[in-house]
Design a protein around this nucleic acid. Sequence first.
DNA 1: TAGTTTGTTGATCACGTGATCAACTCATCG
DNA 2: CGATGAGTTGATCACGTGATCAACAAACTA
Lengths: 207, 207
Amino acid sequence: MPSSSTTGRVRRSAEERRIEIGEAARDLALAEGLDAVTLRAVAARIGVASGLVAHYIPGMDDLVADTFAEIVGTELAEVRALLPDAPAPERLGALVRTSLDPARAEVTLVWVQAWALGSRNAALAARVREAMDAWRRVIADEISRGMAQGSIPEGEAEPIAWHVLAMIDGLGAHALVGWGPGIDAVTPVLRAVAGLLGVPVARLGGG
Amino acid sequence: MPSSSTTGRVRRSAEERRIEIGEAARDLALAEGLDAVTLRAVAARIGVASGLVAHYIPGMDDLVADTFAEIVGTELAEVRALLPDAPAPERLGALVRTSLDPARAEVTLVWVQAWALGSRNAALAARVREAMDAWRRVIADEISRGMAQGSIPEGEAEPIAWHVLAMIDGLGAHALVGWGPGIDAVTPVLRAVAGLLGVPVARLGGG
DNA sequence: TAGTTTGTTGATCACGTGATCAACTCATCG
DNA sequence: CGATGAGTTGATCACGTGATCAACAAACTA
């Protein structure tokens, strides 16, 4: 029998349901990976028939792509919010340290899966490129500001930003299979970034 | 023809079949990704019933893991074979250039998929860690030799090797979704590596 | 109250996955 | 020649995927 008086079912407005579905997809992706965002899994998580979820989305590929965009968009905003009010090099150091925080492993899995799934899911691939552009832009802006302020030697900000990102992503992927334990990741990365920027390591701040 | 005109079937020895299956799995993985290594896909590629493939392997997870190991093992051997007979810094430069060659995109997809699948496939995860260890060892050995010969300033080779690898892998993953086109990847990476090693960029050779 | 709208269900379809196994074919040996 | 055994088939199982849709129920409206 149904749970309460008549039925336990709750009717929500279309807009509420859409939000609920999006949240469920996000939670699932963070907890179990992007490939766990499945029609039935999302439905089960919000206690609803699978058909309902299908009714609200164009297709699963789109939901997955949207979920990815939502997660990494939030991630970037969070990382930016944590940057200290300090000179560019120190802000960049903080950005690297935050990005390499093991607590972000959930998001790293999402990133790596997105790169892999991006080969087949065109919508996702487009979102991935957008997200990477956004990240590079943030890093490049910091570098450019530092160059304008004189705290970083003049040069091309874009390629440097690109490679800082590559280092962060590479280390993240490595950590995903439990590789590189026991080694301090942050210090050598900061050394490498300092080399890329042309500034002393100490200028990147931190302890 | 040898085998009767009624059926085109060919009988092979168990060992031949095993090799044939392994090769089909490798080709499939390189052409369409590790997730395309499927019971039926492998069978179809060698023109055989799916049951035959299943008969020769413990399970698909194992075949996928073996296929990954085979591919990246060969890759590392190839890259090593291409290193010039020169001082350590130049060899490292060549290693980086070879690894970033766009022609290796096939293998990159395999790597990224392996990182992602490694979360669920324990056998694969183990192989991935082994492969990464092998890579790091090769790079670290080169660095250590350079340090011993005086062509690279003294320091800890392992962390440096680790980060050179992270940079290579990160850039590879980026390229997978068609990101970073039009930007010369090699030059800035060499600059970063030179910074890590503490040697002038010119010492990494190439051009 | 009766009628209409809108959210929701659950069965069902078509497909793809890995795995299993009795039956078959063919090469080889006695 | 007949028997033995290794290689192979193809149907089949159980499961999971995305998608569809007629029917149903709750809320709203006249």
